[in-house]
Design a protein around this nucleic acid. Structure first.
Length: 224
DNA sequence: GCCAACGTTGGC
DNA sequence: GCCAACGTTGGC
């Protein structure tokens, strides 16, 4: 009933009083650096801060997996079955992933990635139809992603709404992307730095325009 | 502020 | 089901 997607994040873990632990990059830069002009060192993993991402990849689990009594299954077919083929991307409990969602703008596109399943890979494309707002599931004790350390006054977690755009002409398996990535690492090709492999476990990640376009072209090529 | 223990992600 | 990678916690 709930549109309980399977968005991945890391453990919220109870009462962790200080706002912003890790990764709240944005927030952190603004508040933590009253020190000196230590110059807001950008998180090195976060590429150039000035370069704004416009393309994304979002992971979801297409196969049934029960967590706290709820099925986390939410594949691209499930998104297509939603009213208006739209769903909120709740349940992200990782600061980096959250911050990327907060940076998303209406109309931007994301790959819909199938994780934790028989054949992981990119299944389709979605677009952002509502920019970040409070993820209500953090306040629901029944929800697998309930976060007791978050308060209504000062919510920790956000989500966006995504709408189905289309499936890719062919499913692009992780294994294929990995081969390309490995090649590109030595040759300096387009997928040399793709977050999928350089930032393991991040459930919401940015892609450069080059990465996004390159992957899109793969759908017209032969499977390998 | 360091870092070992712990928990989760997610490919294989 | 295993386990590597890695974020988070908490003792010191």
């Amino acid at each position: 009933m709930r549109q309980t997607k399977r968005k991945r994040g890391t453990s919220p873990v109870l009462e962790e009083p200080k706002e912003v632990t890790e990764g709240a990059e944005q927030d952190r830069k603004s508040i933590t650096k009253h020190k000196k002009h230590k110059a807001v060192k950008a998180n090195p993993r976060e590429k150039k801060p000035q370069e704004e991402y416009k393309c994304w990849l979002m992971k979801s689990e297409p196969e049934t997996r029960i967590e706290k009594g709820l099925d986390m299954k939410f594949g691209i077919e499930d998104l297509m079955a939603q009213p208006s083929q739209t769903a909120c991307w709740d349940g992200v409990r990782n600061y980096q992933a959250r911050n990327f969602m907060r940076a998303m703008k209406i109309g931007q596109q994301a790959f819909f990635y199938h994780s934790n399943c028989k054949e992981p890979g990119i299944a389709g494309i979605v677009q952002i139809v509502k920019e970040s707002y409070v993820d209500h599931t953090q306040f629901d004790p029944k929800n697998p992603h309930y976060d007791a350390s978050s308060s209504q006054d000062n919510p920790k977690w956000s989500m966006v709404d995504v709408q189905f755009v289309r499936k890719l002409k062919r499913y692009i398996p992780l294994a294929e992307l990995k081969k390309l990535h490995l090649n590109d690492k030595s040759s300096g090709g387009p997928l040399r730095n793709i977050a999928l492999f350089t930032r393991a476990r991040l459930s919401v990640q940015p892609l450069t325009q080059e990465e996004f376009d390159f992957i899109l072209k793969l759908e017209d090529q032969k499977d390998i």
